[in-house]
Amino acid sequence: MSRFKLANIIAYGFVTLFSIYVLMPILVMVLTTFKSKREIFLEPLGIPSQFGISSFEKALSVGLGSFMLNSFIVSFFAVFLIVTISGMAAYVLSRIDFKINKFVYLLIVAGFAIPPAAVLVPLYTMVSNLNLLNSLFGVIMPLTAFGIPFTVILFYAFFLDFPKEVEEAATIDGCTKLQIFFRIIVPLSGPVIASAAIFQTVWIWNEFLLALIMLTSDDFKTLPIGLLKLRGEWTSDWGAIMAGLTIAVIPVLIVFLIFQKYFVRSLAGLGK
């Protein structure tokens, strides 16, 4: 009995300690935002004596609002394209016996494996030659491409388990595959669409490398690149930097807390 209790204490202790390790940096970020410069230097472990908002004003003066808007536009369009295009392709791969399907699936998996860093120079050259550097469109297109392979794999697994009876009935009624997909499959795929969309939104919202090389003008920077500007502008004004981070991070955390069920589901599906 006492051995059981000891094991229990260790188990709770371990997850509690790990949770503190996870929460502390977030707490530091929020508290530093409200501290005065003096407090930041003299009492790194202390809590702020007042809740000043001057740091937020400094952070917003860098253009955080417009970076956020850019991130929103890029995420919205890229995620819409990724989910639509991947869903369509995955449906074909899971239903129709084209001879080339196996090859297409292998291509998709290869596309999943290739990281943006491995194609950086030609991709930059291509976007530059198309005159799309410093345009949101120029980032949305390659980001869409890099989001497709993973999403196809996710949808493919879902469609394989999808009951086929409804589709067979529709086929007898003379529906084409195109009609079946949009009228029957899509309305019944809510959960997997939600998982895919949320997962891709987080990825695109946070994407750094491609945005870094493509977007050099302040007007088009997305949030992750904008945060670097924040640091450049307020080099050792940690209050301003942390205020910017708080503005950038808290909305994502709220979205995550609301939708966390779907997150966990889409990630858990990876192991299957």
């Binding site: 392709a89 291509l107 290739i114 194609v119 120079v121 030609p122 297109m141 491409a145």
Partner: peptide
């Protein structure tokens, strides 16, 4: 076949232009 091709082609175009051609370019 027609509708399947319509559904499959956009994914292939995106991946080809922005992943595979740059990979060959590399």
């Amino acid at each position: 076949k027609v509708s399947a091709t319509i559904l499959l082609v956009p994914a292939l175009i995106f991946c080809t232009i922005f992943i595979f051609i740059p990979a060959i370019g590399t």
